[in-house]
Design a protein around this nucleic acid. Structure first.
Length: 279
DNA sequence: AACGTCGCACTTCT
DNA sequence: CAGAAGTGCGACGT
């Protein structure tokens, strides 16, 4: 399966580095991404000694324990107004297979749907994007309205696993593909008005392991009113990050550039989108 | 607010 | 240890 993944990747159009380097990185990413947990292994990342800190070692949450027994171990990520749970959703071999299938079957948006409107200016987004979900829903984001394509079996499989493990149902998924470490997404909150209020968002990742950073809204800028440390996670191959209310009220999140990452990552954020208002 | 890019200061790597 | 590379984050835009 690894060979298949690597072959698949070598046929991809987006890279400038040596093939052997890419192959090596891909192997490394896939090997490393299986069990890294939510906390960065890098020493510079603060452990929970300090102020707004974040992570405790793996207690199981009662309701999920009832559903899945000890099969999934969860890491709670907590800070003031931040409430997330992280677990490995798929085994490495399951995740490898799904990743190959996603790379083969997903059809990303092109043309106008690859741009966002900010301050009256159109920008190409530094990633690829597509939405799938129940037909009739729409999702509007920075000047672009995205209509979902119909569910694919592989997406239903992921969605159903998320439901099984979290007890939450989702009718929509926004998919972002980061071709390498230069692709990224800036700080934002998922506060679109067509999201069901207080519903959690389930973020499932495949491929390269990437840093993921939360910053408290009031800690940003020159006149910050709070001084909360950013909360930094690593999102690994086959992982699930469940972002629960009220995380998205006060915390911004981003996937920063990581120039040394050479392999692609595909991220799926499952959401509960309200049906369009009747007119 | 938006959410991207840019520039600069700082840190980490080699 | 010094220069290069990588990162964090505020400023800016319409």
């Amino acid at each position: 399966m690894d060979k298949f993944v690597i072959k698949q990747w070598k046929n991809s159009e987006n890279h400038k580095s040596e093939r052997c380097e890419i192959k090596w990185q891909m192997e490394k990413d896939l090997v490393n991404s299986g069990d890294e947990g939510a906390e960065s292994p890098r020493k510079k990342l603060k452990s929970d000694t300090g102020g707004g800190a974040a992570t405790e070692p793996l207690p199981l949450l009662a309701e999920q324990e009832a559903v899945r027994g000890a099969e999934y171990s969860w890491r709670r990520i907590r800070a003031e107004g931040l409430d997330c749970d992280y677990t490995k959703l798929f085994t490495k071999s399951e995740a490898d297979e799904i990743f190959v299938q996603l790379e083969k079957e997903l059809e990303y948006f092109s043309g106008d749907l690859t741009k966002v409107l900010v301050f009256g200016k159109w920008h190409d987004i530094p990633r690829k994007q597509v939405t799938y979900g129940d037909l009739g829903l729409t999702y509007t984001y920075s000047g672009v309205t995205l209509a979902p394509k119909p569910w694919l079996p592989v997406l239903e499989k992921i969605r159903d696993r998320v439901t099984q493990v979290t007890g939450h149902m989702f009718n929509f998924v926004l998919i972002n593909r980061y071709k390498d470490g230069s692709d990224h997404i800036g700080e934002h909150r998922d506060d679109e008005k067509e999201l069901e209020p207080r519903s959690p968002i389930a973020s499932v990742s495949f491929g390269a392991c990437r840093d993921f950073i939360f910053r408290h809204g009031d800690s940003r800028g020159k006149c910050a009113t709070h001084r909360l440390e950013p909360v930094k996670l690593l999102l690994g191959h086959g992982s699930l990050l469940l972002m629960k209310y009220p995380t998205n009220v006060h915390w911004y999140h981003s996937l920063p550039a990581r120039r040394k990452v050479l392999a692609p990552r595909v991220n799926l954020t499952f959401r509960k989108v309200l049906p369009p208002p009747k007119n």
